[in-house]
Structure formats: structure tokens, C-alpha cells
Simulated scan of single mutants.
Amino acid sequence: MTTMMNSTSSLFLNSSSRGPPPWFQFSVCSVAPYGFIFYFGVKVFNLLVGTPCNVLVLWQIASRKSDACTSDIFIFNLAVMDAFFCLMTPIEMVNRLLLDDQRIWYFQRFAYGIKDVAPLYLVCICMDRYMAVVHPILFTGNRDNKIRFGISAVVWGLILAYALTKSILGVMSVNELFSGLILFSFALMVFCNLSVIWALRRCVSGKEEMHPVKRKAFKMVLIILAIIITNYLPPVALMPFVSYYSFVAFRCQISISVFSIMDLSCSIEPLLYITKMDRRDARCCGRCLHRRRKKEEAGKV
């Protein structure tokens, strides 16, 4: 292990003397650029797709006057975080490629800190659906949104504390905490979702049709399970094998690709939520936009 680190250090110093390419975090990564190409591709995709999708989710939840889901509070907060992270893309790319300003790096680490802890809101959504399906009596007695607003405030406190720590003290200061958070969130979300699926399957067995509320919960659970498997399973699967990879393989190829997949959740989450929207909601959105356009045209006349 020491020999590998020494050889890596010498390689880093030798390549540093030639000057690193501007888009590589480590100059030794010039021999393996494909991970960073994928990274920047994800960044652009999040900016172009994730930003409008998250804004649409925010607008759809904010404009909903009836038939609101108890999880919408958590989904709204998650969309705010994802939209903020997507909008950071131009700043990060300009700073990484051109400026290399230390003050902007603080802000970038803060943004990544917020994104790191985003799974906490997925956990909240999973727990909310778990209580609704597995413990419906207890859930019915606690439908007051004040409780969920309080939980959201606590989660935001944890998120800001984590993000500020990462921004000020650096990435390594929260490395172990991040690993523990991802493992904890992944395990809890899988448990909640599998419990909900099992409970719903038992309810449906012998019946022709699922209750609309339970069908809605079932769709939400499937969406979250898809997000978990797609975006959060790779880092969980990677963590036990970190010591087996070389510095170049881990830093330049594996970790950058895995965390890019996590970043994709900024676009995948709102896209899946939009596909879950009822046609009635979509028609409502269309009617609202049509009315607004007619008012603007009337105002011009």
C-alpha cells in the first residue's frame, strides 16, 4: 500500500511539473479522462433537464389546492435542493475550467454538502409512505402538516450544518459521516419500501382493484425504489472495495463516475415525479398556462 502511494505521489509530482489539464482535479487523471467527461456531461444534463423539471415540480406542488399528498412537503424541499444544485453547474464549470477561485470553491463544497445529505428527504418520504400503508391508524392520527414542517426544519438544520462543515473544513472532514449517512439512508429506504410493497401486495391479494390511495402510495414507493437502486446503490456497493483500487482508478474513474450517477438524481427524481402526475394535474397545468397566455394577450390589446 505504501509503495502504491509513493509511486502515485511521484507520478503526481512529475505530472504537476508539466501542469495539469484545467478540467482534472488531479493531474494524474490525464491518463484516464473518461470519468471527467461523463461528469461534465451529467452536469450539463442536470442544468438543461433537471432545472426545468424541478421548477415544474415546485410549481405543481405549490399550485395544488386539493388532493395534496402528505409527502409533498418533503418532495418540495427535495426539489428546492435539486434545483439549487443544478443551477450551480455554470458557476462550478467556470470556476473549475477557468477561474480556480478559492472563495468559489467554498461555495461549491457547500452546494455538494447540500446534495450529499439530500437522501434524508428521500428517507422522510419513505417513512411517510411506510406509516401511511403499514401503520394507517397511527398515520391518520398524525396527518397534521405542522409535524412535517417541523421535521423539514430539523432536516434543513442538519443539512446546513453538514454543508457548512464540508465547505469550511474540507471534504475529508465529513467523509466518514457521508459514508455512514449513505449506508443508513439506503438501508432504511430499502426496508420501508419493501415493507410497503409487501403490505400492499397482501391487501390486493384476492381483490380485483387496489384502493386509489394505496395505488398512489404504491406508485410513489416504486419511484423511490427506482431512485435508490439507480442512484444510491453504486456508492453503497463501492465503499467496501475502496482499498482495492489504485489511486488513478479510484479517483479518476470510479469515484467520479459513481458520484456523477448520484448527481443524476437531480434530474431523475423530478422526471419520475412528473411521470407520476395524474393526467388531471397535467390538464390543470395546461389550462392554467392557457389562461395566463390569454390574459397576457388581452392585456396587450
Rank of each mutant, 00 (worst) to 15 (best):
M1C: 06
M5A: 12
N6C: 02
S7Y: 00
S7C: 07
T8N: 06
T8P: 00
N14V: 04
S17W: 02
Q25S: 10
C29I: 03
A32Q: 03
P33D: 02
I37T: 08
F38K: 07
V42D: 06
K43N: 09
K43P: 01
N46V: 00
V57D: 05
Q60E: 09
C69G: 10
S71D: 10
F74M: 04
L78H: 04
A79H: 08
D82Y: 15
F84I: 15
F84N: 10
L87T: 02
M88V: 03
E92N: 11
V94N: 14
N95F: 06
R96L: 01
W105P: 00
F110C: 07
I114A: 12
K115T: 06
Y121D: 01
M131T: 04
M131I: 04
A132C: 07
T140H: 15
F149T: 11
I151S: 01
I151M: 10
Y162F: 15
L164R: 12
K166L: 03
K166A: 10
L169P: 07
G170K: 14
V174E: 04
L181K: 05
F184C: 09
C192M: 04
N193L: 05
S195I: 00
S195H: 02
R201G: 01
P212L: 12
K214P: 00
K214E: 05
M220R: 12
I223R: 15
I223M: 12
I227F: 11
I228C: 11
I229C: 13
V236R: 09
V236S: 05
V236T: 13
F241E: 01
S246K: 09
V248S: 05
F250W: 06
R251P: 00
C252G: 12
C252F: 04
S260I: 00
L264Q: 08
S265Q: 13
S267I: 12
E269L: 14
L271G: 11
L272M: 14
Y273A: 11
Y273H: 11
K276A: 14
R280W: 07
C285I: 15
G286C: 13
G286M: 15
R293L: 11
E297L: 15
K300F: 03
